[in-house]
């Protein structure tokens, strides 16, 4: 082999070595990047799954606790003799977050009452000051006041949240309210007229103003446990709500 050829092959070897090294480096970089990417995507997937699992509603109990409609428009849900812990639920039939509360924690609240672990008091209030939400809310609240049977009231309450209108449109039309009441089992012959004449609209408004002032409600929904506001991180997470109520009953 001539000297020139030897030098050329040495140069080739060095070049090949460098190329291999670059390739190794590149592969290593690619592996680290893929690993970080996989971990990040897995964390996002796990986190989403965990969020969904936290937001899983309980199955409603077959037998509900007896419900009583009180003269001030509130409704008590409690087994006989159960006086505490007291869970106060302040909600507006038109408020989307109240619907979210009902969807997530509504069954837990009712189940706790059915199990005799809590006395639940629903306070339907109308908090909106602008249209169309203000009138929507008062129409629904006034209609609920036309029902004197606790069981029917609770079924109507659930129907109202299922059929909650968007905040941008006029909803809770009077004839709809009447038919939802009848679907909820209301048989009182005075019910349709009570709803269509909005007999209790003024009561609904004055009661709301009084409750907001006296219970210091700043927004709906507010869930109180023995008079103290529960944070959203508890009220909206069924398992945590159950845990808090059970702990208060110890």
């Amino acid at each position: 082999m001539s000297k020139g050829a030897r030098e050329a092959s040495a140069r080739d070897r060095i070049a090949a070595q460098r190329a291999a090294e670059r390739k190794r480096e590149r592969r290593k970089r690619l592996m680290v990047i893929s690993a970080v990417g996989v971990v990040a995507v897995a964390a996002i997937g796990l986190g989403s799954w965990y969020a969904a699992s936290q937001d899983t509603a309980e199955t409603p109990a077959l037998a509900q606790a007896p419900a009583t409609v009180n003269s001030d428009g509130t409704v008590t849900l409690a087994k006989a003799g159960v006086t505490g812990p007291v869970v106060d639920v302040y909600e507006d039939f038109q408020c989307p977050a109240c619907k979210a509360l009902e969807t997530s924690s509504g069954s837990t609240i009712k189940n706790l009452a059915a199990e005799g672990k809590a006395k639940v008091v629903y306070h339907p209030v109308s908090i909106f000051s602008a249209e169309p939400t203000k009138s929507n809310s008062i129409r629904a609240g006034a209609a609920a006041r036309c029902i004197s049977d606790g069981k029917q009231w609770l079924a109507f309450h659930d129907k109202l949240f299922q059929n909650q209108p968007s905040e941008t449109v006029e909803g809770f039309a009077l004839n709809d309210l009447v038919s939802w009441g009848e679907e909820a089992g209301v048989t009182d012959p005075a019910f349709p007229e009570c709803v269509t004449t909005q007999k209790h609209a003024a009561d609904q408004e004055s009661q709301s103003a009084r409750v907001m002032r006296e219970a210091k409600i700043t927004g709906t929904p507010t869930v109180k446990l023995d008079g103290k506001d529960l944070p959203n991180e508890v009220a909206f997470v069924p398992a945590k709500l159950r845990e808090a109520v059970l702990a208060a009953g110890q």
């Binding site: 941008t168 959203n232 991180e233 997470v237």
Partner: peptide, 25 residues
């Protein structure tokens, strides 16, 4: 937002842009 998934879903729905299942996800 992470402590209250129900509210996070509600906040997405408030935009009235995505269909229900997508908004929930």
């Amino acid at each position: 937002k992470i402590g209250t998934p129900a509210l996070s879903v509600q906040a997405v729905k408030a935009y009235e842009l995505l269909p229900g299942g997508v908004a929930t996800a």
